[in-house]
């Protein structure tokens, strides 16, 4: 199996006020194989979210390198990073981050809209994705009219809009009850079986049963 994500000597140091520096990543190296399902675990402040943000091109490291597929993420400019995120990464957030004034369908179609996909095509694809996550009778609902579990399923559908090889999920079950959380994890498992490489950040030990590998982090290091 080839590695789709290669992280080498990654450091991230935040400059806080009063010349205090906080080390979020103290030199992390790891590889994640294509088609695998990994969970980064650890207590708050262990650097697991920072690692995911840098891998997803949402944040820049202080030093070190990250490669995702053929992309040398750490050396991309802003424009290239935007295209990288479009093509390679689907994000799922703890707080769903749906746009409240848009319907489920419009939320799922949003990444396609940014890519310039025509209205008919993107709405058709968004509908199919919502169908896949079991929300085809909720397509015209606004997020506030739906439960947390349903909202996160919309977010999963949105992450799949561009059919990215890598899905990054930051505490995807953190705001959900157990049943909904299990549903989401099952959904991610199904996606993983379809070939998507999935990396989740969690501190819920019960999630580990769904994943192939656990990356345990503490104080900016992989243990």
């Amino acid at each position: 199996m080839t590695s789709i994500i290669r992280v080498n000597e990654l450091r991230k140091i935040y400059d806080m006020d009063d010349n205090v520096q906080v080390t979020a990543l103290a030199g992390v190296s790891l590889e994640i194989e294509e088609g695998s399902f990994v969970a980064a675990m650890g207590p708050s402040g262990s650097g697991k979210s920072t690692l995911m943000h840098i891998v997803g091109g949402l944040d820049r490291p202080t030093s070190g390198s990250v490669n995702v597929g053929s992309y040398d993420v750490t050396n991309l400019d802003e424009q290239q990073l935007a295209f990288f995120r479009r093509k390679m990464i689907g994000f799922i957030f703890q707080s769903f981050n749906l746009i409240a004034t848009m319907t489920a369908l419009e939320n799922v179609a949003l990444p396609l809209r940014l890519c310039g996909v025509s209205r008919d095509e993107r709405l058709e694809r968004a509908y199919r994705l919502l169908e896949e996550v079991g929300l085809k009778d909720r397509v015209y609902h606004k997020p506030t009219q739906l439960s947390g579990g349903q909202q996160q399923r919309i977010a999963v559908a949105r992450a799949l809009a561009n059919d990215p090889p890598v899905i990054l999920a930051d505490e995807p079950t953190g705001n959900l009850d157990t049943t909904s959380g299990e549903n989401i994890m099952a959904m991610l498992n199904a996606l993983n079986e379809k070939g998507h490489t999935i990396m989740i950040v969690t501190h819920d030990p019960r999630m580990t049963k769904h994943v192939h590998r656990v990356i345990q982090m503490l104080d900016g290091y992989v243990q």
Partner: peptide
């Protein structure tokens, strides 16, 4: 602000 962050995560360029 959060929406802007989201748009960027979903692949919006600075120009967008």
């Amino acid at each position: 602000t959060k929406e802007i962050g989201l748009l960027k995560a979903l692949g919006a360029t600075n120009k967008n």
